[in-house]
Amino acid sequence: MTLDMSVLKKIRPLSVLIYIVLVAGAVFMLTPFLWMISSSLKDVESIFIFPPQWIPKEIIWDNYAQLFTSSYYDFPRYYLNTSIVVLLRVGGMFVFCSMAAYGFARLDFPMKNVLFMVVLATLMLPIQVLMVPLYFEMRFFKWINTFRALIIPQSLGAFGGAFSIFLLRQYFMALPKDLENAAEIDGCSIPRTFFSVMLPQVRMAYAALAIFVFQGSWNDYVWPLIVINNPKKYVVSLGIALFLSDRAALTNWPLLMASSVLGLVPIIIVFLLFQKYFMQNLVMSGMK
């Protein structure tokens, strides 16, 4: 910072104005979250008090208790199901997407470039376009209402998994060739080289990608909507959308808001803990 007075004079009022604008915008961004939390702790009557009460007079935890104990909403189960799906998808990404990424980055075999183009091409093909044929296919496989449908395609690079492959490939390509040469001299086989020499080198990329896959899987709604209709197999997003089929619940704003809080809290915690990885992912996605 220079202490040039003329610069200070020129910049100060503008900076203050910019700051006010940014803070006001931030308040706008946060308001729906605060409103959601506040509403989730009210009873059905006080929610309609106008002007809005930001801090409830009486805090009602019962809305959350209902979501965990009622026979209609079974959030413990939704959490469990979602956790299973998320963990296995992240695991699938670790194994299959990283193997493919390494193959594309470091091994030489016929048709490699064509196959890699195929992988990249899937990035332009959203699941929305494939809803109908995929539904038929899942029914043919007898995968409707199974976790297999929620886990296997994503683990094998379908539905956006290509992004993980692309990113990991970039990381592998940046590693020095000497690593493999040394491993080869030591008599390491190719899979051994991959698992014990190359994989540990891209740990940071894994951390960032694990969070990326976690976010995508936790928030996923469209795919579960198509392949799951048995409440025992519901994930959190489907559990929240369950409100849409129940007139009484749909106007029970406190309960609805409590369910939304339950859907948002895990991802927000992960975000606040690892936010630098989130931004990093995003910026990397812009470089493809």
């Binding site: 193997m99 196959l115 094998l156 690079g157 379908a158 492959i165």
Partner: peptide, 14 residues
């Protein structure tokens, strides 16, 4: 072998 599973997944599911 390394890219096979993913290529298979992409062909089958996309």
């Amino acid at each position: 072998a390394f890219v096979g599973p993913v290529i298979l997944g992409i062909l089958v599911f996309m």
